[in-house]
Design a protein around this nucleic acid. Structure first.
Lengths: 163, 163
DNA sequence: CATTGTTATATACCATGTTATTGATTTGCG
DNA sequence: CGCAAATCAATAACATGGTATATAACAATG
């Protein structure tokens, strides 16, 4: 069965990138599930942003994640319900709501940084290890690579086995 | 403001691909809007699949697009309401519903093939023209390129101006 | 040939992104 | 100062993806 998106090349590059991205996120989710991390893979960028940059107002969080502000508002509400982040008022501007990691959030990030992120990063790096050449070829190689050995199986094989 | 997704490299590759894909789709949408095409850019892969492969049952359509079947069912309902596709029963298997382009759908595809797709393809090819090297670098170049000159402005400049 | 399993599609519900709008502050200027 | 404009966040409404499940038709077997 022909893969139409792939055949159409540049014309459907957007759909294709989105499709590969979703695939990667889903696979990453499986790695996290296996490590008993209770957060959706898609929430990690937000947690990572707070980890890297410290407490931030909603708008700046949106900017640093490259997504629209309502998306951040929603994720923050969700993570706040899980007790991983909390929102406080700014002192000098009552409109701004500063988001920060709670103690639990901090702990989760630390665990993830130690156990999960290195595996995931290594698995993706493994997937992309031998890529070169034109973008479309690299994307095809990623798709084929994921189909051959899903990310979560690449994550099992630690350090030495990779590359 | 630091772009956290970009900084995290392979760790957030999924989020990043998704983000770039969405950006590209949104820009493509603007090109289509300007050409008075009345369909969401995200529906075009389905129309293109029917154009390339002829009438197909829902499941095979899903396979050839690389998305899950319910997504196809939804898109087909939408496009059927717009009168662009129609569904018929298979002769030998009453479960299968064969999706095909209507006359209007055929016409839309023909117009798009003539007017829109070449522009879009050229604009994306322009965006990706000088890319080389590691995947993450190419992605960064795409993001920077889109930020500098959005796809819809690249599509204005026809043939000669490109590359 | 009836029951059981499989397959094809539809439906329900959820996740996560978007844009447009609203409401509350803050800013800036006459 | 006082009011218009700008800014920040929340909400609503929509788009589009997913998984899980229901339903209907077909296949296969005792």
């Amino acid at each position: 069965m022909e893969d139409v998106i792939r055949s159409l090349g540049f014309l459907c590059l957007g759909s294709r990138l989105k499709r590969i991205g979703e695939q990667l996120q889903a696979d990453t989710q499986r790695v996290l599930d296996r490590l008993d991390v209770q957060v959706q893979s898609s929430q990690f960028p937000l947690l990572a942003a707070l980890d890297r940059l410290g407490p931030l107002p909603v708008g700046e969080l949106a900017q640093s994640l490259g997504i629209a502000q309502p998306g951040v508002t929603r994720s923050v509400s969700l993570l706040a319900e899980l007790g991983l982040v909390e929102v406080g008022q700014s002192n000098n501007d009552q409109r701004r709501r500063i988001v920060s990691l709670t103690r639990d959030g901090r702990r989760l990030v630390d665990v993830a940084k130690r156990d999960a992120w290195p595996r995931i990063e290594k698995a993706v790096a493994d997937l992309c290890a031998d890529l070169s050449g034109p973008l479309l070829d690299q994307l095809a190689a990623i798709e084929d690579g994921l189909a051959a050995v899903p990310l979560d199986r690449r994550a099992e094989r630690t350090g030495a086995a990779v590359q």
